[in-house]
Write a protein that binds this DNA or RNA. Structure first.
Lengths: 145, 145
DNA sequence: CTTACTGCCGTACTAAAGTACGGAGTCAAT
DNA sequence: ATTGACTCCGTACTTTAGTACGGCAGTAAG
């Protein structure tokens, strides 16, 4: 009773979640998706659960998790260990906040530089470039990765 | 009168700016650094200007410019075209702000999720994981790349 | 029956920004 | 003069997240 008409083939699954077919195959190779049921013909067909899983992956990526982190999350999902997931997420939140700080600093610097660029009408040297060269004095190299 | 004692060799330059020797060579291959003076022996030695240039690159990277963008910046530097540099920077500022927005959204979501994780003491399902699965409903796939 | 469309598969390729390696050559000091 | 550290050079490898390619098989329509 598995009328193949509306079977969820790889192509349909891919279209459904908005990814490339190759991406599905890639996830499978990497173990993010289990090998789905495969009736005699050899054509895999997927379940809505598979679609959900891929969507999960994509959602987590949108939240900035790497595939490696997502792999953990999925493992946790299998066991539903809330606290472990929360810990992972907390760690990730820390990362996100650090990146946020960096970006804010960058934004301020760039905006500032651009403002100066606009102002100095008669100056010969570009404040942006000068600032980048000057920046070297204010940073300590060797501490950062 | 180039007493080799304190000549800026590749190793010293690298240590000075806090990068790997191979990175210097890499920059050279990619045209970010000109081939430096090379007295008979074959050992390059660099000038403080080279160090400044590498530091420029690293500073710009800290501001989130890619090497490709930095290449432009450096070309502009050679001609000191302030307005072109400003335009490039403005464009980049736009990028930075977009990334900032994304990150802020991510931060809010994660923080929210974590808060819920802490609250629900007796719940079986993890809000984080559930939310990631649920997230699929709120996003439109197919519009983004 | 032929053409077209999918699906399946392994393999190879992409981009970015380096890192690592192995065999020479060179330099300063012991 | 020989050691040990450093340089030079080209080539190959790394990571992340996929994409692309080319050949073959099964199904559906004309």
């Amino acid at each position: 009773m598995d009328h193949r008409e509306n079977a969820l083939t790889i192509g349909r699954l891919a279209a459904m979640v908005g990814v490339n077919v190759e991406t599905i195959r890639f996830y499978q190779r990497k173990g993010f998706l289990r090998e789905p049921l495969r009736p005699p013909g050899g054509v895999r067909h997927y379940t809505p659960a598979d679609a959900a899983r891929v969507k999960f992956i994509k959602s987590a990526q949108r939240l900035g998790f790497s595939l490696d982190e997502i792999r953990h999350l999925l493992r946790l999902d299998e066991g539903m260990q809330c606290d472990a997931a929360a810990q992972l997420a907390a760690q990730h939140l820390g990362d996100v906040r650090r990146r946020l700080q960096d970006l804010r600093r960058i934004e301020a610097t760039l905006a500032n530089l651009l403002e100066q660029c606009g102002q100095g009408g008669g100056k010969v040297t570009c404040p942006l470039i000068v600032a980048l060269y000057a920046d070297e004095m204010k940073k300590d190299y060797g501490s950062g990765p």
